[in-house]
Design a protein around this nucleic acid. Structure first.
Lengths: 339, 339
DNA sequence: ATGAAAGCGCTAACAC
DNA sequence: GTGTTAGCGCTTTCAT
């Protein structure tokens, strides 16, 4: 910082107060809309605020009083997914309505990255944090407990959360789709997924799926989990890979709709008929499916509701209001004509 | 706050210092990895930090010293777009490498929403902010000037930025595509876009496009800008709308690839051949196009590079290093077989 | 309805 | 290599 430049942030409360001919306390009360001032005083203070372009210093306020800010840390696997994007959008929208500011992190499914992000975030004394998934490092768990800070874990349903959990029941999603595909007469069933990292956010869905097959005495004939970000292209070449290894496959369950759409176009490019030659099922209920000639069989999920519930639960915890420990965001299998 | 609960954040520097048998200053130096302590002292301090689970209070540090935090505010139109998601991902990744924390906002193209977000963010004395688009309220401009804070405007190229601009040359993108479509012999050319709001982030592209047509003495026969979020479905029904009004249309330029893909499937569903009956062009070079049977004619854009450049430019400005005022992220027309 | 004083946890500046 | 002092801008507490 150069010595000549004026203090960043312009004027202070003291300057506003002085200009308005009142004490700092009175000015402070006016700005926080507390009580204890006449409407005449109020007008005088607000006029000076306007004139001086006063911007409150929340750093000082949060530090000086209760040691807690209105900052909230939110960590998601990635920002490029329409599903996580929707959740984050809903969280941010809801939090800002309640007067909180959202600090983000993207851990791309690495618990270590999550932990180092968290350490940096906690130094700002956030009012709470929202994490994705159930896998956290021991360090993460310990530091959260030590800070006794409200935590909401999202995405995966977690019946023994650190604090509060708001998620989808991925196991049931997988199980239900497994049963559905079996019910349509498919028996050479494969799974194609993608995980950038070890945390395995898609794994639970596969487990539910596999269980459904096992309960019917059927084995999943192929499981291909690419080390990649889930997406259209991963679905395309994952399908190529799995079909090249096993020509008997008559149906594929995908990590999500983007991968399913990629797989669908791979199959069509090879002249396969859907669902006669090969059946395809996705997950997520993404918008892209709405324009395809085929109606994709998928599980539609309520990402907006998940985000809103998570943000509301966090705010309730911050305010020490009663909150359900475990909330489930709804999902629904939507039969199309691709299975 | 209940009086019984311990101070959030656990121990303080003073406690660490006392436990280590040194002064606060020495402990502070160790933690900031400054010089001025023996390695023996360092070990003793770090041991106590570990033992006490000390988490530094950046609120106090930022407030007490230079009045500036390592927080950075980043505002984008929305978080559900793969393009903006990619930019944000790249920004966050780059900023965190430099030790900054990202606070987000989503203004969905409303300058007013941007301004109120900005006011809340500036109260945290961020080291800098990144805004999207060129349209800002007078209040936004004034407050930024008054705070004399580093600002990077992204997305739209802006030759007279508030501070620094890193963007795509949308006008050229549109112009180039206009010329390309004309070159392929199309003459009944329409445009289909979508804007949720008045700020009109897609408008410049249209202007370039229209100019290309005008320069060739051709008029754009239809312009349909839906009041909606750009997306697959908006492309689908926007195409339906525009074609129902004008049956002569032989080619359509879309706001982006999602809309183009939506339009493509609408046209195919009506039995039209592409590009013979109707030509289709998008923008963005999105992944979805990689799996279609058609190679979509589009403009591929470097969202990761844009985000990285923007973050780096902001950091340079914060550090008072020399920075180019205007940076252009590259775009490239990629001819496919849909035009 | 308003004001005065104290202090939050940290670091810059200056001693030693 | 280490310690002391002062102060950042605000809010809390307690007077008036």
């Amino acid at each position: 910082m150069t010595g000549t430049s004026p203090r960043r942030g312009g004027s202070t409360l003291a300057e506003v107060a002085k200009a308005a001919g009142v004490s700092k306390m009175t000015a402070s009360r006016v700005l926080r809309d507390a009580s204890g001032f006449s409407s005449e005083t109020r007008d005088r203070v607000l006029r000076e605020v306007e004139r001086l372009g006063y911007v409150p210093n929340r750093l000082a306020a949060a530090f000086g009083s209760d040691q807690t800010s209105t900052l909230v840390g939110v960590c998601v696997p990635r920002l490029t997914s329409s599903l996580f994007g929707s959740v984050l959008d809903s969280i941010d929208h809801t939090l800002s309505k309640f007067g909180y500011q959202t600090m983000i992190g993207a851990h791309e499914q690495s618990p270590q990255a999550e932990e180092s992000w968290l350490r940096a975030i906690l130094a700002w004394r956030p009012a709470g944090v929202i994490l994705s998934g159930r896998k956290h490092t021991p360090g993460t768990v310990e530091i959260l407990r030590a800070q006794s800070i409200p935590v909401v874990e999202i995405w995966n349903l977690n019946t023994s959360p650190l604090d509060v959990s708001v998620g989808f029941n991925h196991f049931d999603c997988g199980y239900e789709m497994g049963r559905f595909m079996l019910g349509r007469g498919h028996s050479n069933i494969a799974y194609v997924g993608a995980e950038s990292n070890a945390a395995g956010m898609g794994e639970v869905r596969y487990q539910g799926f596999e269980n459904a097959l096992a309960d019917a005495g059927v084995e999943c004939v192929a499981k291909e989990v690419l080390v990649d970000r889930p997406g259209f292209y991963a679905g395309f070449y994952g399908t190529e890979t799995v079909l090249s290894r096993n020509a008997e496959i008559d149906s594929i369950y995908y990590h999500d709709d983007t991968m399913a759409v990629g797989g669908l176009f791979y199959c069509k490019s090879k002249g396969m008929r859907i669902p006669d030659d090969i059946a395809i099922a996705g997950w997520g209920g993404m918008e892209v499916a709405s324009v395809l000639p085929e109606r994709l069989t998928t599980t539609s999920v309520t990402t907006q509701a998940l985000g809103k519930s998570a943000a509301e639960a966090l705010v309730a915890r911050i305010r020490e209001e009663p909150v359900e420990d475990v909330l489930v965001a709804s999902t629904r299998l939507v039969p199309g004509n691709t299975v």
